[in-house]
Write a protein that binds this DNA or RNA. Structure first.
Lengths: 216, 216
DNA sequence: CGGAATTTGATAAAAAAATATCTATACCGT
DNA sequence: ACGGTATAGATATTTTTTTATCAAATTCCG
């Protein structure tokens, strides 16, 4: 399985997309890189390169057409066709994700939730029915869902992943703080929230040191 | 304000740290890079470089001492002294973050929550009292807190950021889907959850194409 | 209508990150 | 004790990402 290129660009694309959707709603038809760059806290040339990576072209001296940009980014990320997912673990994090309405913008629809807590089963969370995890593999297969979002405690994440694999899953978005073992033909994206905290910590420390130097 | 180096390394460090803490709890005293690499789904040499960046040294032919590694990573990230934070927006995402017990491991203690919902004020969420946002600037200053975690809807994030800045904040961890305007002496780390989804989408698509090629 | 300012896109350069190679050190089993 | 295997660390190389430079296209303003 070969490697995905332009990782940093890919990570930035959803943010452009979100801003562009806002602009379109506001009736903006043309946008130039300096404006997006300012929004993103990036250099304009980074933005230009990112947009070019998706295949659009702009008009020199003018900018890019907002609708074209949106389409190009969505196509590049394969977000032009909504894909369906199941979510496992309807605790506080799972509920937060189920309640987040922005995912439609990102081509994702969560169609069902699973939990091991018997009191939750049969209820709905943000409009999705909660099923018992014992039915996860079966329903994943029957619903022909290709993505699973794991929001369980770390200690149950591997069994959930196994069930998803048994159900024929293609991709797993893993919010549990563990490394999952899956076959080669399944893609896992592990979300490590503390990664951002680490970056913030280092930036803060750097700032602190710079201020101290100024005092000298 | 100069740039932070070794970003990818910094983002990986919390994951090493988490695993190392588990190992220590299990009584493991020595660890070698191949093992960590397997856990991280990385090449061993990446791990060795990452660890070296924090300043530790290992024993050729043996590995690293687990406690030393932990200390080195924590010191590098300034996580050896717990720092305090306030959280704004006690909705589902805010609650999820308040309920996450792993942050102590990452040197972070959330000491208070704020919300604009009058029915929440005075109650506690996962052990933290909820204060009205109107008191955010005042309490931030009085509590001498240096980090704010924004979990409000996007439309209120800027006013919250302004209040934090007024309260003398140093760093903001922003989970709202907007770009915040803050003075130069305040660091913002924006968490874009959809970035991970974008990476997953691209990987999935790549996999799909590779499978199709094999069929030919 | 003309010149200044803006912006894209192409090309080139620099910086950062990942990967490879090699050497010295330690362990393990015999 | 010895030879095979495993590992860290130093150095070098390659790849990826970011940044710079410049020409061509467009707009705006006088």
């Amino acid at each position: 399985m070969s490697k995905v290129q332009k990782l940093p660009t890919i990570r930035r694309l959803p943010t452009y997309l979100h801003r562009l959707n806002e602009m379109r709603k506001d009736g903006v038809e043309i946008v130039a890189t300096p404006e997006l760059a300012k929004y993103m806290n990036l250099e304009a040339i980074v933005v230009r390169k990112d947009l070019a990576a998706t295949g659009v072209t702009g008009q020199p001296g003018v900018g890019y057409k907002v609708p074209e940009l949106i389409e190009s980014i969505r196509a590049f990320l394969s977000w032009d066709n909504t894909s369906e997912a199941v979510l496992i673990g309807a605790g506080s994090l799972g509920s937060a994700i189920l309640g987040y309405e922005g995912f439609e913008e990102y081509g994702l629809r969560i169609i069902a939730a699973f939990d091991s807590d018997l009191t939750k089963i049969g209820s709905t969370v943000h409009g999705r029915e909660v099923f018992p995890v014992s039915r996860l593999a079966e329903l994943t297969r029957r619903l022909r869902v290709h993505m699973g979002i794991i929001c369980t405690p770390a200690e149950h994440a591997q069994e959930v992943a196994d069930a998803l694999v048994a159900g024929g899953i293609w991709g797993i978005w893993n919010f549990a703080n563990v490394s999952l073992k899956v076959p080669d033909n399944v893609v896992v994206q592990r979300e490590v929230i503390a990664g951002g905290l680490a970056v913030l910590s280092v930036k803060l420390n750097k700032l602190k040191h710079e201020l101290q130097e100024q005092e000298d």
